[in-house]
C-alpha cells in the first residue's frame, strides 16, 4: 500500500534516552548478576533470550493490544465497523479527524483499559514485578502525555490511576504517536532486552560493543516476537470493540460529556475477557530475582 510503512516515532519510543525513567530499571539483571547467574557475555545472552521468550513476548502482546485499542485508526470507525480488520495496518486519518475520533473513543475505552490492565496483573505473579511495571508505566505515561498529547492517554491515566502496566502505557503511547500495533510490540520486545543489557554493561563492565552484538543477534527474534504478538491480539481486538468500545461509544454519543470524573469507568465485562487467550509465558527465575532484588541491601537499580 502507499501509506508509509515506518513511523519515526517508534525510534523515540524505543530509545533508551526517552525521559521516562527506564534507565533506573535492569529488568532483573542486577539481581541475576548479584546471584552470579549472569556473569559474562554467554550468560547475559542466555538471560536476554529467556527474558524475550517469556516476559518480552507477554509485554509485546500487551503493547500491541494497547496500541490497537488506542490508535485513533482503530477507534475512528463507527461502532458498526469493527476495527479489527485494519488492526495491523496503518492508514491514519487527518490530525483533525484523529483528534475528534480520539476524543470520542476515549470515553468508550475506559472499560477496555481496565480489562487489559487486569490481564497484565494476572500475568505478573510477582508483586515486585507488578510494582516495577506500574511505576515504569506511570512515568512513561507522564512523559508521553506531554510529548503526544491525546485524550486516549488521558483516558488511560484516568482508568488506571495507580499507573498502568508498562507495556500498556507503551502501547498506548505508540498509538497516540501514530504507530501500528506491530511497531508497539516491537518496541516492547526491544525494551525488554535493552534495559537488562545496558544494566549488565554498567554492572559487569562488559564491552558495550560485544553486548550490542548480542542485541543485534536477537533482532530476528525481536521481529518474530512482534509479529506473534500482533497476530495474537487480533481476535481480542475484535471482541473488545464489540463488547466494550462500541457500547462505550454509544454511551459517549448519547451523553457527550460522559467522559468526566463523575462517570466512573464501566466495570469489566462479566464475560470472558477479550484478552484471555493472549500469551502468558512465565519466567519463574525472573519472579524470584525480582523479589530478591527488592530485599537486597545494595542495589543500584529500581528493579
Amino acid at each position: 500500500m502507499s501509506a508509509p510503512s515506518l513511523n519515526a516515532a517508534l525510534l523515540l519510543l524505543a530509545d533508551s534516552r526517552l525521559p521516562a525513567g527506564g534507565h533506573g530499571h535492569s529488568g532483573g539483571a542486577e539481581a541475576a548478576i548479584a546471584a552470579g547467574t549472569v556473569r559474562d557475555l554467554p550468560t547475559l545472552a542466555a538471560f536476554l533470550r529467556g527474558r524475550l521468550a517469556t516476559s518480552g513476548l507477554v509485554s509485546a502482546c500487551l503493547a500491541a493490544a494497547a496500541c490497537a485499542l488506542s490508535a485513533p485508526a482503530a477507534g475512528s470507525g463507527t461502532a458498526s465497523a469493527p476495527a479489527g480488520d485494519d488492526a495491523g495496518e496503518r492508514g491514519m486519518p487527518s490530525p483533525a479527524a484523529r483528534g475528534r475520533a480520539a476524543a470520542g473513543v476515549a470515553g468508550g475505552l475506559l472499560g477496555g483499559w481496565t480489562e487489559l490492565d487486569a490481564e497484565a496483573d494476572a500475568r505478573t505473579a510477582s508483586p515486585a514485578q507488578r510494582e516495577a511495571s506500574r511505576v515504569q508505566g506511570r512515568l512513561l505515561l507522564r512523559t508521553a502525555r506531554r510529548i503526544w498529547p491525546s485524550p486516549v492517554l488521558d483516558g488511560l491515566a484516568e482508568a488506571v490511576p495507580e499507573g498502568a502496566h508498562h507495556p500498556i502505557a507503551l502501547g498506548a503511547a505508540a498509538g497516540a504517536a501514530g504507530c501500528a500495533p506491530e511497531e508497539a510490540a516491537l518496541a516492547a520486545a526491544y525494551t525488554s532486552v535493552t534495559g537488562p543489557a545496558t544494566a549488565a554493561v554498567r554492572l559487569l563492565g562488559l564491552d558495550p560493543v560485544a553486548v550490542h552484538r548480542l542485541l543485534a543477534d536477537l533482532a530476528p527474534d525481536l521481529e518474530r516476537t512482534a509479529s506473534t504478538a500482533t497476530a495474537a491480539v487480533t481476535p481480542g481486538l475484535e471482541q473488545t470493540v464489540s463488547t466494550v468500545i462500541a457500547p462505550g461509544l454509544e454511551r459517549a454519543a448519547t451523553a457527550p460529556s460522559a467522559h468526566t470524573a463523575d462517570s466512573p469507568p464501566p466495570s469489566p465485562a462479566p464475560t470472558a475477557s477479550a484478552w484471555a487467550e493472549l500469551p502468558a509465558h512465565s519466567a519463574p527465575a525472573l519472579d524470584l530475582l525480582a523479589e530478591r532484588h527488592l530485599r537486597a541491601g545494595l542495589r543500584l537499580f529500581v528493579s
Binding site: A46, R51, A53
Partner: peptide
C-alpha cells in the same frame, strides 16, 4: 536455549 536461561529456569 530458553530452559537454561538464568531468566527462566536457570539450572533447575
Amino acid at each position: 536455549a530458553i530452559d537454561a536461561s538464568p531468566a527462566v529456569y536457570g539450572d533447575a
